[in-house]
Computed example of a mutant assay.
Amino acid sequence: MIVAFGTYDASRHPRVGVLVAGLRAHGYTVRELDRPLGLSTAARVRMLRQPWRLPGLLVRLLRCWALLVGDVVRHRRAHGRPDAVLVGYLGHFDVVLARLLFGRTPVLLDHLVFAGDTAADRGARGVRVRLLRGLDRLAAACADVVLLDTPEHLRMLGELAPRRARRGLVVPVGAPAQWFDAAPAAVRDPARDGGPLRVVFFGLFTPLQGADVLADALAGALPRAAEDAEHGGRALAVTLVGSGQDLPAARERLRGTPGIAWRDWVEPADLPALVAAHDVCLGIFSATPKGLRVVPNKVFQGLAAGCVVVTSDTEPQRRLLGGHLELVPPADPGALADRLLALRDADALTAAHARAAAGRDLARPAAVVEPLVRLLDARGVRP
């Protein structure tokens, strides 16, 4: 039996839900001891970057931990000691408590986000970044296995904490079942139904996402598509979902641009259906160090939802899913605009859909956890 433990929120951060579902698909019994902290990734990072906010984080954390301690005591009475403990995403603090509560039981930390790296990507500098890197090292020290999503992050763990490097294991992000369930039964062909090519972007408007690149690309592509539509060509309709530090600049850049619908928020339960109603899902487009190291959630989720996925041509994305994605050079708005305009062609879109469909199964929970299943088996932890 495996215990999934922490203050994670699988509705906001689906990665831990993917791991749990994948392990269950391989026959493991997984019991969740989870008391969600109720903070988004952005809110947690903001608290860590702004020290005066930390008391609020500490109060929330201690309340959740008090409940978790009671949960562990009751679970131990009813089921005994687990074979392993999986600490959910954003578990930098939770892994410390897990180490204290579960003793010699193997602790697996899903370290999808490095606190120091994320803060630096969002503009933090100096002592705060050094402190957060210290937090990353502490978290890795408390874990027997550190789960990372790309080999680039595995190398980063080795640079950050050389003595912990052998504890790292690459497990891709994947997508929850709801995204697969949302996919349409048949691929829509806008060239035949007379509608526009429907494109969606969702996420935080941060440097990692390349919101400035996206805005510049749409500012170029949408007027050209609108002009083509006046002469019988295919239009573009773009839905932009989310908020973040670069949203005001993106809105200003796209002011007056035709064909855009803005959505500040979509409930997590409603997001798969919204994305699946589009032809193209957009990934990330920055050339920041972090942007070159990740394969984001939305790439897996877009494939699962039956969309064509357009994203940046980076080593981790190309290595894992390259044959199934529409790749454009990072930080190149002209190339992104040209690719979106090209996908209005019926044959090009059909071929892109076929490539995407061939890669959907790579995003399923049972597939992405296979490296973890092999590690657990080697350690004697079996269903």
Rank of each mutant, 00 (worst) to 15 (best):
Y8K: 08
G116Y: 06
A185V: 07
L247E: 13
G134Y: 12
R155P: 01
R155F: 08
A217Q: 01
R128Q: 11
P258M: 01
H26W: 15
A358G: 10
G322H: 01
A42T: 15
D144T: 14
A219M: 07
R192A: 15
V145I: 15
A229L: 06
L90I: 11
F205D: 02
Q50E: 15
H231M: 12
T314D: 04
P329K: 11
W179G: 01
R81A: 15
T314N: 07
P248K: 10
F180K: 00
P289D: 04
L109R: 04
P272V: 00
L61W: 07
L154C: 09
G70M: 06
R24M: 13
A229E: 01
R46K: 14
L336C: 04
L101D: 06
T311M: 01
D212M: 09
L97H: 01
P365Y: 01
Q178E: 15
C142T: 02
P55F: 10
G210I: 00
L67H: 08
T206Q: 06
A141C: 14
G168H: 02
P223F: 15
Q178I: 05
K290T: 01
G283V: 01
L148D: 02
L157Y: 01
A305F: 02
L218C: 07
G322T: 09
T41M: 05
V187W: 15
A115W: 00
L54Y: 08
R63A: 10
A43S: 14
P223H: 11
G88P: 05
F205T: 03
V16Q: 10
D228L: 14
L148V: 15
D361V: 07
A183S: 03
G168N: 04
G126I: 09
R293F: 02
L62S: 05
G174D: 05
G210E: 03
P296E: 10
A367M: 09
G380P: 02
V199T: 01
A229F: 04
E326M: 06
F114N: 04
L274N: 05
S286V: 05
V170D: 06
R379Y: 12
E267D: 15
P258A: 07
L39S: 09
P207W: 11
R364M: 07
P207D: 05
R155V: 00
A237F: 12
A273I: 00
L341W: 02
D270M: 10
G210F: 11
D9S: 08
D9F: 06
F102A: 05
